[in-house]
Structures are given as C-alpha cells and as structure tokens.
Amino acid sequence: MNLVCHIGTPKTATTYLQETCAANPDWLRENGMVYPDLLSPIANHITLFYAAAQYVDPSAHAYGLRSMAEVAVFRGTLADQIRQQIAAAPPGVTTMLMSSENLTGNLGGPGVRELACLLRPLFDQVRIVVYLRRQDDAVLSMYGEFMRRGYHGAPFAEFVENALRPDPTPPYLNYRRLLGHWIEAFGAQAITVRLFDRAELVDGDVLTDFMAQVLGRRPDLAGLVPSGNGNESLSAPALEFLRLIQPMVPFQMNNTVNPARQRLERRINRLPGTPRPQMSAAQSARIMAHYRAANDWLRQTFFPDRPGPLFAPRPELPADSNLGRISLTEFARFTGEMLQ
C-alpha cells in the first residue's frame, strides 16, 4: 500500500476535499484508492495531528487525551488502526489517502518527524501533497477563521502584525521554514507543492487538481459527487461582530473547548458572506515583502523553471481595508441571528 498524505495548508479547500473523499468510497475504490477511518467521527484525519504533536491540544480532550502518556498509547492504537485499514482494503486498492490541515497549521518540526516515524514503516511509499496560497490571501482567510471560531478578538491590523513576527500567527506562512520540516522528515522528492490559485490548478478546480496529483493523470470525475461544504467566508461586518462578542464566548474556556461557543457554530455560519473582507493595498504589499525571501526559495526549489516573483503584486486592492466596521443596525441584526 502506498500513502498520499495531504497536509493542507489551512484555508485551501481542505474540508471540501476531505468530505468529498469520505463521501465517495465507491468512486475511490474504482480508482484504486481508499480514504480510511482513523478513529475520528469527522472527515479530517485530525488524529494524525494528535498522535504526532509534542503537546496535548485542547481539542484532543474529546478523544480522551489529556497527557503525553495518553498520547503515546494513542499513537500505538492509531498505528494498529492503520494496519487494519490496509489489511481490509479491497483488491486493486493500492493507495491510501489521508488529509489534515492540522499537520501544517499546528504541527512543528518535532511533530513532523514523529509523524514520519509513525507512517513510513506502514507503507511502501509515502507522498506528501501540500497546497500553498499567497500569504496576503492566507492571512485574510485565516483572520476570518479565527473570528468564526472565536480564537481571539484582535483587530485585523494587529493580526497582520502578528503574521509578521518571528513567531508568527498563523505559524505556517514562511514556506521555507514549513517545508524544511517535511523535507527533513520525508525528503524533497516525496513532496508535491501546488499553488492554490485557479490559474494554477488543473481545469481551475482544486478537486480535479488533487485527484490529478494522486492518480498521476487527468482524472475522470464522472460519478464523483463533490461535497457541498464550501466553508464560505463571512462578510467584513460579520467578522467585526464576531470579534466584538469574542470575549463573552471565546473558543476555549478552563483549558478546554467552550461548549457555549460550539452551540453557536451553526448560527455563526448563517451570517452573511457579503460584502467580502478586503485588506488594503499597503497591507498586502507589506505582507508579501516580508515573505519575499521565503517565496523566492519556494520558487527556486519547487518551480525552478518559473520566472519570479512567484506571487504577483496586487494593485487592484483598495487604499483602505473594509475590516473593523459595523453599523448598529448590522450588529442588532446579527445578534438576532444568534438568538434564533
């Protein structure tokens, strides 16, 4: 059995790919693939992250993991589960797919090495597939996710500052640092890097592109039913609403996931998607300048035939961001959505 491990990055349609794979076992089987059950009720193989991380994430508490000793036991249990899934694979199935954006969003270098120790003995070959988007888009998208989930209540300008620190949030935007961990653990030849841009994707579609990377050819997607989960972004006023209420309903409380926040999730996802959030042209230019050296390395290492820069400037962006603004009427309307 060979393994294709899709590692995100976050906000590159990973939920869409995961749920599509989980919902189409027959199509995958007909094409020689299986998307396994890795001891999780969700399509995201987040248990790979729990087993490899060098700390106990609060969300792992729901899996009974509260200490590193329990994680060590779980790691062995997960390895046994993978072996069982390999043994149960139908004839003709030669590729197992795994996918979790947590492997790039939350896993550091020691964790990547731990993951390699877990996976490499179980498979004849391991391939890593990763999608990378330009950092200004990634920062804006991740800010929306932080507001949606209630991770913190920082305004967007502060979030941008955090993205430019030596220990940035999000932590995965320096692609040289990020991929260096995976090159060290799996080798550069095992890593396929794709740019999350319609102009770069096969047929301009991430699902078609992903299956093309797995199969090594342009896929015939007839019979494959895409997931309806597009994980759409929220509007700029909705993000400001969520930022303002975050101190009252944060994601985490008492060192565990806040059940009050979880109960709001469905209602939050009903908030409007327009007007779409936009950063300013100056913010975009500053972010991309900060990551220019890492992007030059990325181009030279994985796209040596491409002229630079890897990501073009964005002159179409406005002079002022539309984030951080909400009218009293919008606030009242969104509050009503939360109460329904």
Rank of each mutant, 00 (worst) to 15 (best):
M142K: 04
T47R: 12
E30L: 13
P219Q: 05
T15K: 08
M288D: 10
L264K: 12
D305A: 10
R83W: 01
G216K: 12
R263K: 14
Y131R: 05
Y143F: 14
S327L: 06
Y55H: 09
T9S: 15
P226D: 09
L97Q: 02
R113F: 06
G153C: 10
I46S: 07
I46R: 11
R165P: 03
M98S: 07
P304H: 06
L132I: 14
S141E: 07
C5R: 00
T329S: 14
R176M: 06
A185T: 07
E19T: 14
G228M: 07
L242R: 08
T14I: 03
T192Y: 05
M1D: 02
N231I: 03
C21R: 03
M147S: 07
T301W: 06
G223S: 14
L38N: 07
C117R: 15
G336T: 02
P250V: 00
S284A: 13
S67M: 02
Y143Q: 03
E70N: 07
Y172H: 14
V34A: 15
G230P: 04
A154K: 15
M98K: 01
V4M: 09
I128Y: 10
R267K: 15
D320E: 15
P226F: 11
H181T: 04
N254A: 14
L38C: 11
P36L: 02
R243S: 02
A79K: 05
D137S: 11
P219Y: 05
L224M: 13
E158W: 01
M288I: 01
L48K: 02
E161C: 07
Y172P: 05
A13C: 09
V34I: 13
V112Q: 11
G32T: 10
V202Q: 03
D80Q: 11
D197H: 12
L242I: 05
A260K: 11
Y175V: 03
G32N: 13
A293Q: 12
D296R: 08
P247W: 04
R267E: 14
R66E: 04
G180M: 08
N229F: 15
R194E: 05
F159Y: 11
Q262I: 13
L207Y: 08
A319G: 15
G223T: 10
R66Y: 06
S67E: 01
E30Q: 14
S141H: 11
L242W: 09
Y63E: 00
S284Q: 04
P91D: 08
M211G: 02
S40F: 10
R83E: 07
A163C: 04
R270N: 13
T9V: 13
V139D: 04
C117L: 14
P313C: 03
A281K: 13
C5S: 09
E19Y: 10
L28G: 12
